[in-house]
Design a protein around this nucleic acid. Structure first.
Length: 421
RNA sequence: GGAGGGGUGUCCGAAUUGGCAAGGAGCCGGUCUUGAAAACCGGUGAAAGGCAGUAAUGCCCGUCUGGGUUCGAGUCCCAGCCCCUCCGCCA
């Protein structure tokens, strides 16, 4: 979140960000609340000061065998007043906190105006077919590697079951991506797949996006919607050394999302599921280096598509598409032959200090040992299910077989084709 | 799931019947030394926050977390979290 002080001092930037995001939030209400709150704090602190001074006097008097009864009577009144103020202060603090938790991050000046993303670059050529390309759902079912009906039977709508070479392809992709990122300097994390309330609030999913999460009621634990949540919370409430930054992590987790109210052709098959696999990249950096690191992280995610020989493009996210907690971000979109469009397969974001402030993650500066919030970044590298979609569609043959990308052969015990058994 | 023990700074660790949160290690500087270590001297250290102020600074908060009792809580009471030991269950 942003701090009350920052919002107060940077009203124009906050307004600009809200405008780009197309959001309406009443800042005047916040401002009057904030000034009332500060007035209250001053009076409250003054009373506390009085209490501290006189309490010491009472202690001293008692040691000298004097009678402090008169002061005690007087201080009872002060104490009662403090209790009153405390109640009010709690209300103000709560209201301020609620406001700030529901305020999105600011927008970086480079975030495009309007409601359209801006294309930055393209790689590869969409494949030309001398037949009508089928969509992944049809391909998957006809090859017997995807089973939606039986997944619905054991769980419900929005789940899928991978079989045989389909399951092996999914698993191969997870390992291929992890190995690639590890070889390029990322450290692997295998985190818990559930997080507690504080952690889930730290990255911005709570309280605003409560309805998008699966919750274990008894423990108040949340199934992770992305590895970003546990991995960013690695250092919650910690102070790191500047020399140790940037830190780069890669983590595989399944992701669980309720996705309430999403239907339609665009998200058919395994494009949007309640459970999907993802390999995620997370970085902790200093404020000075975060945008440079975002470029590197994005290229890292692109590298996966290059090696899989899948055509894609990169777009700069406009304010309305930008995540709630992000200040700036790119989408990587892979070519989808059946729909003749690009499909989002990775979002790479710089959260600046928004998550760090929520989760209280700081670093100690080398120069003067002062502490500052660090910057957090993340990006999918990549969403596994959608990568399967892209492979099935882009590498399909007239005869219904699927050519497995060469880099995956060693991960699939030499299999080169997915075909009907 | 049950029983017991514990949580104070970067680390170790005190604080009596409730009354200014010891001491040590470390860190920084110095003396000594060819250089270092050791020793000695001095300094520093209770996070992070918050409020006021141009600032120096002042004040509030702050002993795992949240409540409560009290003029006053590290200390007393209640609830919770985490760690350790033992018992039960268990892939």
């Amino acid at each position: 979140m942003l701090s009350a002080k920052w919002v107060r001092d940077n009203l124009d930037a906050v307004k600009e960000g809200l405008k780009k995001r197309g959001m309406q939030i009443n800042l005047d209400r916040f401002l009057s609340l904030d000034s009332q709150r500060r007035q209250l704090i001053q009076e409250f602190d003054e009373l506390r000061h009085q209490q501290n001074v006189y309490s010491k006097k009472i202690g001293k008097l008692r040691q000298e065998k004097g009678n402090p009864q008169e002061i005690i009577e007087e201080m009872k009144k002060v104490s009662a007043k403090i209790a009153e103020f405390e109640e009010k202060k709690r209300e103000y603090d709560e209201e301020t906190r609620n406001f700030l938790l529901n305020l999105p991050n600011r927008c970086h000046p480079d975030v495009p105006e309007g409601d359209a993303n801006a294309e930055v670059r393209r790689w590869g050529e969409p494949p030309q077919f001398d037949f009508c390309p089928r969509d992944h759902e049809e391909i998957g079912e006809s090859l017997g590697i995807l089973d939606f009906k039986r997944a619905a039977k054991m769980t419900g709508r929005g789940f899928v079951l991978y079989k045989g070479l389909g399951a092996r392809l999914e698993r191969a992709l997870i390992n291929f991506m992890l190995d690639l990122h590890i070889s390029r300097g990322y450290e692997e994390i295998l985190p818990p797949f559930m997080t507690n309330y504080a952690a889930t609030q730290g990255t911005g999913q709570l309280p605003k996006f409560r309805d998008d999460l699966y919750r274990c009621e008894k423990e108040d634990y949340y199934l992770v919607p992305t590895a970003e949540v546990p991995v960013t919370n690695l250092y919650r409430e910690e102070i790191l050394d500047e020399e140790d930054l940037p830190l780069s992590y890669v983590a595989y987790t399944p992701c669980f999302r309720r996705e309430a109210g999403a239907y339609g052709k665009k998200i058919q098959g395994i494009i949007r599921q309640h459970q999907f696999n993802k390999v995620e990249l997370v970085k902790f950096t200093t404020p000075e280096t975060s945008y440079g690191e975002l470029e590197k992280l994005t290229l890292e995610a692109e590298e996966v598509l290059k090696r899989l020989e899948l055509p894609y493009r990169v777009v700069k996210l406009c304010g309305q598409e930008l995540g709630f907690a992000a200040a700036f971000g790119y989408d990587i979109e892979v070519w989808l032959p059946s729909q003749e469009r690009f499909l989002e397969i990775s979002t790479c974001s710089n959260f600046e200090d928004y998550q760090a402030r929520r989760a209280s993650i700081k670093f100690r500066a080398k120069a003067n040992k002062s502490t500052h919030y660090l910057h957090t970044l993340n990006g999918s590298g990549l969403a596994i299910g959608r990568t399967v979609v892209a492979i099935l569609e882009n590498f399909q043959n007239r005869d219904g077989r699927i050519l497995i990308p060469e880099v995956l052969h060693s991960y699939m015990q030499g299999e080169k084709w997915i075909e009907k058994p």
